[in-house]
Structures are given as C-alpha cells and as structure tokens.
Amino acid sequence: MKISSTIAAAVAAAIIAGTCQAAETETGSGPFSAVYEEDPTLPAHVIYHPQAMGQAKLPVYVFGNGGCSADGTSSRNHLLDIASHGYLIVAPGVIAALHPEAAKPTEGPGLGMATRASALTEAIDWAVRENDRPQSPYFHKIDTHAIAVSGWSCGGLQAIIVAPDPRVKTLVVMNSGVFNGDKNLIPGMEVHKAMLADIHVPTLYILGGPSDIAYANGMDDYARLTTVPAALVNIPVGHGGTYMQPHGGIAAEVVVDWLDWQLKGDREKGKMFFGTACGFCGDSRLTLESKNMPSH
C-alpha cells in the first residue's frame, strides 16, 4: 500500500468515526457559547464564532481540514471549543449536514484534495475585508493583526504553505508534516522541506505519537525550525487526534493556550510551554519540547 493511500485511509476513518461520535450540542469549554454557519460573503467556507460578539476584538484562526476535505465541520468540536474562548475561525468547505454530497470525501487509491491552500488565504482576505466593511456583522470586531493558520494532516500542509503570508502571526501544524525526502505523495500539493525556512512566526506542532502516520514527517519538520520559537507536543492517540472528543480534547486545550499567548499576549499561557514553571511539561497526557523561546 502506498503511503498516500495509508494517510487517506487514516484520515477518512478518523473523520467518519468522529462524525459518529459528535455531540450536536457541543459548544466549547470557554466562556462564550459558540456557533458555526455559512456566510454568503465567503462561499465554500464555514465560520465559527462566539454567538454573542462583545466589545473585544476576535483573533482569527484559519484551519485546513483533515484530508483537505470540503467538510468544514469535520473537526467542529475542536473548532467550536476554540471559538468559545473568543476566536473567529474559518475552515474551507461546507456544513456537511446541509450539503452531504459537496462534503463527501474524494475517492480513489491516493489522497485527493477537495480544497486548496488558497482557500486559507481567501479566509484571511475575507476577515480583513469584513472588519473594514461597515455593513458587516464583524465590522471593527476582528483583530486583523492577530491571525493564526492551522490544519490537520493534509490541512496542516496547507497551513505550512500559507504561513509565510506577512499577516500570519503564528502557525499550528496538527498531525502533519512535510513528507520526508520531499516525496510528492498528494497530487497537486506543492510543499517541500525547503519551505520551512520561510516560516517567520512562532510555530506549534501537535502530533499523535509514534503511531501517527505523520509522526516522522512532523518530527523532522520541527528539527528544521532553527530561528523561530517552536514547541512540539505529542499526544499518544495516533493520526486521528482528539478533534471530535468533547471540547476537542487535550489538543484543543493546548491550542487555546498557545493562541492566547501568541495572539492575545497572555504571558501566563506562555508559561505552559517553557520555563521552570512549564505547565504542560509535567502533564501525563502528553510530552512537550520547545526551543528558541523568549528569555523572559
């Protein structure tokens, strides 16, 4: 079996299993009730946000789906949880319950792509545009200087492609990594190890431990990050991650703390990742390493 077929099968199985376990009442663990919806001003994307948007501006978390699928709700527990902590989130695709055929995974022996990395850039463009549009419900409610790109598996590669965008302030790569040996195992996906040198922002890798099909690729990526603050978290759950566990599981907890630090400037959350009081360092649910961190 080709590696690409193995990855496709792993992602498809995880998405299917997650969908079956989804709690439709899931809104997140944060202080805000979160919702997701489609918006005619941004076709072929799903938007997650606090149901009641207050005075605080929302940082942006743009997320590439597992398998680069067109199901913008395939990781909804993860995304709803982050939104419930005061974030605006955009994922490519549609709401699968409303458009089952459009969200259906691509078929074939390899891993196809129903969405492209450009969809993440479109999401960033939209957020900037809506923040400046007087008729928008997001008018002056988006922090366009606090944008993260992220993604699961194939979607993580999309995030790596988009990360050099100067508007991006941090990168989160989940159960993913550029293929070792620069093998192009996903038709149409132009991503290479050399592109890691273009990453200019603090970066978090979250992997599923040695049983994760992307483990070796992600570990190698992390080793190549020599100039930016970086952290590597391994949660021993394999390639499927914790995306559809209640509140997105431990991975969502880690991501929220990272985003609060990187996008909201919460230094106490930064202490979860490094230093003598490192909060996640002694957490039995995961392992953590970090490098190039600030001295204060």
Score class of each variant (00 low, 15 high):
4 S>I: 01
75 S>G: 03
62 V>Y: 02
90 V>W: 00
58 L>Q: 04
93 G>A: 10
2 K>P: 15
29 S>C: 15
81 D>A: 06
32 F>E: 14
45 H>S: 08
55 Q>F: 09
85 H>P: 07
53 M>W: 08
79 L>C: 07
21 Q>K: 13
8 A>R: 07
39 D>L: 08
24 E>M: 10
22 A>I: 12
13 A>N: 01
6 T>E: 10
89 I>R: 03
40 P>L: 12
59 P>Q: 05
71 D>A: 13
47 I>M: 14
18 G>T: 04
76 R>A: 04
28 G>A: 09
48 Y>A: 09
21 Q>N: 13
25 T>L: 15
50 P>A: 14
39 D>T: 07
23 A>P: 05
88 L>K: 04
4 S>K: 05
26 E>A: 13
8 A>N: 15
60 V>C: 02
23 A>G: 13
57 K>G: 01
23 A>K: 11
60 V>H: 01
14 A>E: 00
79 L>P: 02
9 A>T: 10
21 Q>H: 11
35 V>S: 07
64 G>S: 08
61 Y>F: 13
93 G>E: 04
47 I>L: 10
52 A>F: 13
68 C>P: 01
51 Q>A: 15
93 G>K: 04
5 S>H: 06
4 S>Y: 02
89 I>T: 11
66 G>D: 01
66 G>P: 03
11 V>C: 09
9 A>K: 11
43 P>C: 14
62 V>L: 12
57 K>R: 15
50 P>W: 03
60 V>A: 05
73 T>P: 02
86 G>Q: 05
48 Y>K: 08
21 Q>A: 13
52 A>E: 12
77 N>M: 11
78 H>M: 12
93 G>N: 09
51 Q>K: 15
24 E>I: 10
47 I>N: 02
55 Q>L: 12
49 H>K: 14
15 I>V: 15
8 A>D: 02
70 A>F: 01
37 E>W: 11
13 A>K: 01
44 A>R: 14
12 A>I: 03
28 G>E: 03
34 A>V: 13
51 Q>I: 09
17 A>V: 11
